[in-house]
Amino acid sequence: MKQLRLVFILVIAGIMAASIVWSQEQENLEGAMDLKSREFGQHQRSQVRFDHYLHETIVRCRVCHHDFYVFSNRNEGKGSKCATCHKREINKDIPIPLLTAFHNRCKGCHENYIKWGRASGPVMCGTCHIKT
């Protein structure tokens, strides 16, 4: 009988632990955003799911968003997007095309972290552009 009670407690504890983990996963998914832009037209590769919450805890906003005061970055649907300045093709004013800007901000940073011997994110094409 005692054993049975132990099993029961363990099962309940297991369910609770799983629900906590699950709810956290749900929370993480809320912070995830699909990186896409109309500037590209039709995307050649599957869209990248980017975990904004995770990155907020690791790097400062301005690492990716330039200067909030100068560029008035996208915030709650207002302000400018990456594609407001970075266009598909390079031009006189903005020498970095949108695709390269995205790639440098993700893969470039991940590569730097690997270079510094720190925990890092994916760098191989298919680890971000996951085929569905």
């Binding site: 050649q44 095309p97 695709l99 390269t100 790639h103 440098n104 094409c125």
Partner: peptide
């Protein structure tokens, strides 16, 4: 190839 040229560009 697209992917090769993306790497080259970067």
């Amino acid at each position: 190839l697209l992917a090769h040229n993306v790497i080259l560009e970067e």
